[in-house]
């Protein structure tokens, strides 16, 4: 863990050293802090999007299941996490559940203790609810004949889902997924309210030192850059999906 931490610091020192000459002074002074935070944001984004995609897929499958309980559960999952603000969810888990303390939470305490872990979990759950809706929409666009055909070939429902429906649903849903990824990145800034030193957390600390509006502008540029990179990456994948 500490090796990984050192690696992150080394990256951010390296980036700042390289960028020294070309960045404005107000940024260069605090550059390692911005980049340290940027890396935490990136880390949370990568982990929560990957985990969120997996959970979201399961929820989407549950939503079209033949089991009523599964359908209702998956519907409630999406409804609750899409119907309430992310900030409320973060505070409920960190300040609300966390206030129960180590005695009541027992073995769960190490999780609730860490702002980072709570942030990651809530971001993951939140994005999974949106991804499930997107995928369900994608499955809905497929002609019902496909499932019937797959079943009549002797495929099980699960297999038909895995081999026939989901791959197509992913392709249909890709642009919407891209939007969700950007929204997730922006939402991740809220973990700064539960003590995580992501880009936003570092930005607010730097802001506290001089109250200069510049601070927020630099941070905005970094976020916008990340959004541009993500968009470009998503486009590239989209092209490949279309060819396939």
């Amino acid at each position: 863990m500490s090796l990984y931490q050192d690696l992150k610091y080394a990256i951010s020192d390296g980036v700042c050293y390289a960028a020294q000459g070309v960045t404005p002074e107000g940024f260069a002074t605090y550059c390692p802090r911005y980049i340290d935070g940027f890396l935490v944001t990136l880390e949370l984004l990568l982990l929560s999007s990957a985990l969120g995609l997996s959970i979201g897929t399961l929820v989407a499958v549950a939503r079209v299941s033949r089991q009523r309980a599964l359908r209702v559960g998956a519907w409630a999952w999406s409804y609750i996490f899409r119907g309430t603000p992310l900030l409320v969810q973060l505070w409920i888990v960190y300040y609300g559940l966390g206030s129960l303390g180590p005695e009541k939470l027992g073995i769960l305490w190490p999780f609730f203790k860490s702002g980072w872990a709570v942030g990651l979990a809530v971001l993951t759950i939140n994005t999974s609810a949106y991804i499930a809706e997107i995928l369900r929409g994608g499955i809905g666009t497929l002609p019902p004949g496909q499932l019937e055909a797959a079943l009549s070939c002797g495929m099980s429902r699960g297999m038909a889902m895995r081999r026939i429906l989901l791959p197509q649903a992913f392709r249909v849903a890709w642009p919407a997924y891209g939007n969700e990824l950007i929204l997730l990145m922006k939402g991740s800034a809220l973990v700064s309210t539960i003590t995580v030193m992501d880009l936003m957390g570092q930005t607010r600390s730097v802001f506290a030192r001089g109250y200069s509006l510049e601070t927020y502008m630099y941070s905005a540029v970094l976020y916008a850059l990340l959004a541009l990179l993500l968009t470009a990456g998503l486009r590239a994948v989209e092209k490949r999906l279309r060819v396939a």
Binding site: A189, L190, L213, Y216, S219, L228
Partner: peptide, 19 residues
């Protein structure tokens, strides 16, 4: 639009508040 879509809502609100 490119700017607003790429920047966290939280940050935009702080910018609006302080700016």
């Amino acid at each position: 639009t490119l700017f607003i879509r790429g920047v966290p809502e939280f940050l935009i609100l702080l910018l609006a508040f302080f700016g």
